[in-house]
Design a protein around this nucleic acid. Structure first.
Lengths: 253, 253
DNA sequence: TGATATAATCAAACATATTGAAACATAAAC
DNA sequence: GTTTATGTTTCAATATGTTTGATTATATCA
């Protein structure tokens, strides 16, 4: 049987049964599970199905919207704890700013018990999530949307941020160093984050401990420019000691 | 049975019975109580149920927040055909603008075979979809994000649009009338759409035929301000005749 | 045709996810 | 308060997924 033929039949099968397991397909078509997986991968790439652990289901939106798949994120547990603490700093009625990223998305997910918030974000996924799930006033900065990441950057983004003031900014980073400060690969991104700090009465850096000791091209600011740094308890004691020596306000969770 | 299937079925069960105990679910699905607990945890994380001692109940808050049933897109088939035709107008390398809405989302979903597009949108869901699925240059206008809808509106949005030029704008509407033109409930939204038309070398209105004869508060423009109107073939012959008399460029699909 | 490149497939090694059982913690019931 | 039921955490076992390299089939071109 031709590959394309098999893929069509798999699709037909899933359409009829709404779902299928890898095992059952491998048996039906008498090929290895590996081949089935590749077929399913292909069908998913074309938005026809959604792959899940053990098989796949139809891509049609079901009555209830359950996220079918969570993007694999590293240090997920750490990020959740960081987010949990970050949320405790937010008071009802405040205006907050959420940088783009997975950690800040975790913050967004934990805001549901707050009341009357105004939330600004540069992340289109966060904006979408909040618009769908909450009753807050939500603003998206707009700008050039980075593929996969969903982060808005560029002059438009910076301009938007120059015109607002918020109570707290939650900024994420993937490179933080005691000496070199917070850095990022491009000037554009650096500028956006600079504006985020400027716009805020209080700036909080949220980053898991694996990001310490990394430096990138464009500098955003120094560690002491943040009112607080939240990270996880896997931070090496040596770094922690240095931070305390520098009188950086840090919270380990 | 796939995990995701079980979770859907548990959700369905709770929806029907308003509640369920861990024990009863474990027995029904023939898995351990531990697994059921994890499933319930997952569903709670997604705001679908509320966990209680011994089981879970439906998240009643959901009844209000879920326009999902209502949102189950009306005239879906028509919208798909309209989108299909709209996509045929787009050439590789062009810059296009997609208004917020379900019809324009259908357009976004059909762009994947195009090459080297630059896409601007005021819809955070469309921006997110494109960022996740394609390799295009994607821009989001930013602004006040409307709950549930995901559309950006407000001065920030209009300002962004004032600074760009695109080859084609695809505009959606929920109210179109031969005499009163295209209208919308608020001035803010009207202004955004006006800017979208201004920014475009060519403006295309995409709307299913059920929207004809409806008028709202704020006027956007007249029908003749569009270079083309794409709608479906359910449009009453009387209206079609009028349109032709007015020399409106219309395409029925 | 024969030689070479390309694609599809499989199997094995390794990585990750899911599950259930046991130990421990907490809440409800009496 | 004590008891009982339920929930949580942790760990090990199993199931599933991914990556890699070898093998075979298919396509391409001199």
């Amino acid at each position: 049987m031709l590959q394309i033929e098999r893929r069509h039949l798999i699709m037909k099968y899933i359409e009829e049964n709404k779902s299928a397991t890898v095992e059952e397909l491998a048996k039906n078509f008498d090929v290895s599970t590996m081949t089935i997986r590749r077929d399913l991968q292909y069908l998913e790439d074309n938005n026809l199905i959604v792959r899940t652990h053990g098989g796949a289901i139809l891509n049609t939106k079901l009555d209830i919207e359950i996220p079918l798949k969570e993007k694999r994120v590293r240090n997920k547990e750490e990020k959740k704890r960081i987010a949990q603490y970050a949320v405790s700093l937010v008071k009802d009625g405040q205006t907050i700013l959420l940088d783009a990223g997975t950690t800040t998305m975790e913050i967004a997910k934990r805001l549901k018990d707050k009341k009357d918030l105004t939330i600004v974000t540069s992340d289109v996924f966060i904006a979408g999530y909040l618009a769908r799930n909450h009753k807050f006033r939500v603003f998206c900065t707009g700008g050039h949307v980075q593929n996969m990441v969903g982060a808005c950057i560029g002059p438009g983004t910076s301009e938007f941020l120059r015109n607002i003031n918020v109570d707290i900014s939650f900024i994420g980073t993937s490179s933080i160093d005691l000496e070199k400060g917070i850095t990022t690969p491009t000037f554009e991104k650096a500028d956006v984050k600079k504006q985020m700090i400027k716009a805020a009465g209080k700036s909080v850096l949220v980053t898991d401990s694996s990001k310490f000791g990394i430096t990138k091209f464009a500098k955003i600011c120094d560690l002491e420019d943040f009112d607080l740094i939240i990270t996880d308890n896997k931070l090496p004691a040596s770094i922690l000691k240095e931070l305390e020596k520098l009188e950086i306000n840090i919270k380990l969770v």
